[in-house]
Design a protein around this nucleic acid. Structure first.
Length: 742
DNA sequence: TGGCGGTACTG
DNA sequence: CAGTAC
DNA sequence: GCCA
């Protein structure tokens, strides 16, 4: 444990405060060149992705810093175990550094489902202690067998065995042992025979000799990138395990040797693994032996038809998503970046807390999203409690919820298993852990001692809690409506609500009917490529209506997440269009900014992309969309397997209904809109507060307001061409989108 | 002890 | 206006 | 529930 502690980044208040000045150096114009993202340099022409014919700009793709170059260039991929803090960039009060986006699981990339995995089985904490204990005993025996002797497995997968303290007598409490099991299990949580520690499951690997030609995959531990379709993953995965290999569920598993991906931009955390196309596995299967990896670099498989609108670049290459497509003219006009800090502070720096003793600052750093959650025994009950506070109790309880989630998130990012609250205190995981009293800290203590939370149990015993929790999961139904439905109509489940809605349609609003209809579909995550395909259709419509209008996907997509909860699209017409309507933008069928969205939506409706509306304004739309029923939309999945008779099965992906938002902004609002809709929610919150405290500004989705007295006046003394200008104006180092998933 | 974001749409 | 969502 |  001490070892783990020493690996943790040091961040005491002193150090954080000391880093403030460097966090916001008075930057001169010339420094803007050596920025992380070259394509975001003002001088560089913005890269267009749309069809040449239409001058539209579809801004998609991973943030530049996630691109292939990073993976191949041998730069160490930052892991959360690194010792020093990366260069501080955004100085913020620690109490504001909160994590997770809007909803509890909205931005979780790693599957955080299920309970604690122990040797392939999953236990959640509904089980009583005996049950957990028994499971631990079983698996300890199995693990001891697997680790103790020599032939750990036939695969020859080598890795260090550090930290495998499974047989320790010193571990007294069941939860300490559980914690250790969790740590161990997460290291060997590999599907398929090779590394399983559970004797009940597939031990065949032990029987075969390593040299067996039929088991040529034995040195391979494959991980399928999320964009590889389920079917393909299943088929190839089976072939690989049949032939002695293993399939890892987690890309961070140190034993992963090959990452199978179609994306050249796939970001993975295991630098030791090779990035290959799934075709590589197929070639190996066909050849009956391992084939050279170089022959199959990660790429789209042949015969794949990307959606028409994206055909020029199936995986959008280098256009920087944090750079909104600037109207060409404004680019020419950008002789100098006239973002002048006319505000407070002679040196342009504001450090309101710097002199204070307790002024704890956290510096925003690249948020190395936790690859695996080593502490579900803490985070899950906390999140559960938070969900009840937020969705059931509502009101000011949302603030309790927020704090519980903040702590859960901080604990989830830890790279060691927590067995004692003190581990969370010496460098405090959140500022609250440095205080004398903290109720959440007490809750964790209780959790570690007893394995449960009295508060949570008590709340869960209340009869309406579960009902309200479920009902408020319907879009458009919040705590109040859910409670009323349960109280007055005796509705407890979505199924019952559907029955009620059928009997008495007037009970629900139109939006709630929509939410109810797509209840299941809205809960599904949206893969990146589908986000791109949907955005591609928006781009087509925009191109037809208003050439030159940029189309940008914000949201968690822009933060580089592999899947998203919804599709967030921002439109920004050119300045020519703003000035001259269809005269300024030849080809436009509309004349004002307000006309764009309705026209775009009309086209999307006739194509069947937009299916329902949730709220419709002139510049903002929220609704439902899905991919149209055409033959070439998402990459069809070819499943000619090892048996290879040449048959190609085209698997039709189910076209789920997705939540989509589209908003139009003028070029001068666009940087703020991008910032706001890229999030995360917690990142926004911290930036808002910083703007308020440091500069007396209120930050919103279309600009700054100067807060003086009661009234607020818009800031008009500075020009903001992109997000960087906003950061700069606030005296903050730029934080790229992918590092904003705080 | 009060504040915790400000805005827009629906009904 | 309350409720909801962003 | 935490913080100023």
């Amino acid at each position: 444990m001490d070892k783990n502690k020493s690996r943790r980044p040091k961040r005491d208040a002193q150090e954080l405060c000391a880093s403030i000045p460097s966090a916001s150096p008075p930057r001169r114009r010339s420094r803007r060149r050596d920025l992380r993202d070259p394509s975001a340099t003002p001088d560089r022409p913005f890269q267009q992705l749309g069809t040449q014919a239409t001058a539209n700009t579809l801004v998609l793709g991973l943030p530049a810093s996630l691109r292939a170059g990073d993976l191949e260039g041998g730069q160490p991929v930052p892991t959360q175990t690194q010792t020093q803090l990366p260069k501080p960039s955004l100085a913020l009060p620690t109490q504001l550094i909160e994590q997770h986006a809007t909803s509890s699981f909205a931005d979780v990339d790693v599957e955080s489902e299920g309970g604690v995995k122990v040797g392939g089985d999953t236990y959640d904490f509904e089980h009583d202690e005996e049950e957990v204990d028994e499971a631990l005993r079983r698996n300890e025996a199995a693990a001891a067998r697997a680790l103790g002797g020599e032939p750990r497995n036939s695969g020859g997968i080598e890795r260090g065995d550090e930290g495998c303290v499974l047989n320790h007598e010193s571990s007294r409490s069941p939860y300490r042992r559980l914690a250790e099991m969790v740590a161990a299990a997460s290291r060997r949580d590999v599907d398929g025979g090779a590394a399983s520690v559970n004797p009940d499951r597939d031990p065949p690997a032990a029987a075969a000799s390593p040299g067996d030609p039929k088991r040529f995959f034995s040195p391979v531990v494959a991980y399928f990138a999320p964009e590889v379709s389920k079917t393909r993953r299943g088929i190839l995965g089976d072939r690989i395990t049949e032939r002695g290999g293993a399939v890892a569920r987690d890309v961070n598993d140190p034993r992963v040797t090959h990452v199978l991906t179609t994306s050249t931009t796939y970001r993975h955390w295991n630098p030791a693994a090779r990035l290959v196309s799934p075709d590589w596995a197929q070639a190996c299967i066909r050849a009956g032996e391992l084939r050279p990896e170089d022959e199959h670099p990660p790429a789209l498989t042949g015969g794949v038809n990307p959606p028409a609108s994206l055909s020029s670049s199936p995986l959008p290459p280098v256009a920087s998503p944090m750079r909104l497509g600037p109207p060409p003219s404004s680019q020419d006009a950008s002789q100098g970046h006239v973002v002048v800090d006319s505000g407070s502070g002679a040196d342009g720096l504001v450090r309101p807390w710097l002199g204070k003793k307790r002024g704890a600052f956290a510096c925003q750093r690249p948020s190395t999203a936790a690859p695996v959650n080593l502490n579900p025994h803490i985070t899950r009950p906390l999140e559960e409690l938070a969900a009840i506070y937020e969705d059931v109790l509502g009101g000011t309880n949302a603030y309790k919820a927020r704090h519980h989630k903040q702590v859960a998130g901080a604990v989830e990012r830890l790279d060691f298993v927590v067995t004692d609250v003190e581990q969370l205190c010496d460098p405090p995981v959140t500022p609250a852990f440095a205080q004398k009293t903290s109720t959440v800290r007490d809750k964790i203590r209780e959790l570690l001692a007893t394995g449960k939370l009295a508060k949570l149990e008590e709340l869960k015993r209340k009869p309406d809690v579960e009902a309200v929790l479920e009902l408020s999961g319907v879009w458009g139904i919040g705590t109040e409506t859910a409670r009323k439905l349960h109280r007055e109509d005796g509705v407890s489940t979505v199924a019952q609500l559907r029955a009620l809605a059928a009997r008495q349609p007037g009970k629900l609003s139109a939006n709630q009917h929509v939410g109810l209809r797509f209840y299941e579909e809205f809960k599904e995550r949206i893969p990146r490529d589908e986000v791109e395909a949907l955005a591609g259709h928006v781009e087509d419509a925009v191109a037809a209506v208003c050439p030159g209008c940029s189309v940008t996907v914000a949201g968690s997509y822009r933060r580089g997440k592999t899947s998203c909860g919804d599709v967030d699209v921002l439109l920004c017409p050119s300045e020519e269009f703003i000035r001259g309507g269809s005269q300024g933008a030849p080809g436009a069928t509309v004349d004002t900014v307000e006309d764009i969205l309705p026209a775009v939506l009309a086209r999307l409706r006739t194509r069947g992309v937009v299916t329902d509306d949730l709220s419709t304004g002139t510049v903002s739309w929220m609704g439902v969309a899905r991919l149209p029923d055409s033959r070439e939309r998402l990459a069809p999945t070819t499943t000619d397997g090892a048996e290879g008779d040449g048959a190609v099965a085209v698997v039709t992906p189910k076209r789920l209904h997705r939540r989509m938002d589209i908003k139009t902004y003028t070029p001068d609002e666009m940087p703020f809109a991008l910032l706001y809709f890229t999030g995360s929610g917690y990142f926004n919150r911290s930036m808002r507060t910083w703007a308020d405290k440091a500069k007396g500004l209120s930050l919103h989705d279309r600009g700054f307001n100067l807060v003086r007295g009661n009234d607020m006046t818009a800031v008009r003394d500075a020009k903001f061409r992109d997000e960087r200008d906003v950061f700069e104006y606030l005296g903050l180092e730029y934080v790229p989108p992918e590092d904003r998933s705080v």
